[in-house]
């Protein structure tokens, strides 16, 4: 049913929820869970913020690491109490009957308000029957609600684990189009692919033609698919771009397996040195000027 060690996560999630909620809310939530009735499950899901409030969940670094060892990329950091309560509720839903389980969870999506959608999409990586949520996840990427997109894109291992290439590429391009912090997309480098690179090449050309800025993180996704044309663009950028653009060009060249890319980077030893002594990486890019 689960693609990870659910019993280990159960211990952590239970303790984290218990320590986050006040005792009334904790008792209320467990009563709803123990009743086993779908109606109680639905009501509890909707009423959650009224019972739990919206304080921010405290997750220590130690705990964070442990969660990460169960499900790489998953974190409950900066979550609000209602979001945690909702995931705890769903986690405790009986998953033995595949059809009933999927229908029950899917039903929540159909009438969800914004915070509910956020909780639902961020619960994807812990849901049972992981294969069943691919279309739902792809549908979520079609949303234009910022916080819903972020629930799917940020710190969420589900998309990179389960989306097919098409849907994954939509997620990545949508993140760029909606100015998201792409560093928080899990699996960004691992799932880079030739088709995505082709889309990015067209897109950067289009931005150039329109005289609009090009997000330097776009280049990151092209590193493994370097060709002469791209090399030309990066050569321009590393010479004439802003500091941020120069750094992005250098990093892209560095992570490429294409020999002319390495040769080009050799002409800019200051960037090569910064990358090698770990001062420069995709997380430390200069802010935009």
């Amino acid at each position: 049913m689960f693609d990870y060690d659910a019993e280990r996560l159960r211990l952590i999630l239970t303790e984290l929820t218990r320590s986050t909620l006040n005792s009334d809310a904790w008792i209320w939530l467990n009563e709803k869970i123990n009743s086993g009735k779908i109606a109680d499950f639905n009501t509890a899901f909707v009423l959650m913020p009224r019972k739990t409030g919206k304080s921010v969940v405290h997750v220590s670094d130690e705990l964070s690491e442990e969660i990460n060892s169960i499900k790489p990329g998953l974190t409950f950091k900066n979550w609000t109490a209602d979001r945690l309560g909702r995931i705890y509720l769903i986690f405790n839903l009986d998953a033995t009957d595949h059809a009933v389980y999927v229908k029950t969870v899917e039903n929540l999506f159909l009438t969800a308000e914004v915070s509910e959608l956020v909780a639902l999409y961020s619960s994807l990586p812990v849901l049972a029957w992981a294969d069943a949520w691919k279309l739902r996840c792809a549908e979520g990427i079609r949303s234009n609600i910022g916080s819903v997109l972020e629930a799917i894109m940020y710190d969420n291992p589900y998309p990179s684990d389960y989306l097919d290439e098409n849907a994954w590429n939509q997620l990545v391009m949508k993140a760029f189009f909606t100015d998201k912090d792409v560093n928080r997309i899990i699996g960004l480098d691992e799932r880079a692919n030739a088709d995505l690179k082709a889309t990015i090449s067209d897109y950067t050309a289009e931005r150039k033609a329109a005289g609009r800025k090009i997000n330097p993180f776009l280049w990151r996704l092209t590193a493994k698919f370097m060709d002469a044309e791209l090399l030309n663009d990066l050569g321009e950028l590393i010479k004439h771009g802003s500091k941020r653009e120069k750094q992005a060009a250098a990093l892209t060249l560095y992570y490429s397996d294409f020999q002319p890319a390495a040769d080009l980077l050799d002409e800019h030893p200051e960037f090569l040195a910064a990358i090698k002594n770990k001062e420069l990486n995709w997380d430390t890019l200069n802010p935009e000027d």
Partner: peptide, 14 residues
């Protein structure tokens, strides 16, 4: 009706 109510708590809120 369902979609309208959903939009009042979803899209329009955003």
């Amino acid at each position: 009706f369902r979609d309208y109510y959903s939009s009042l708590v979803g899209w329009e809120r955003f």
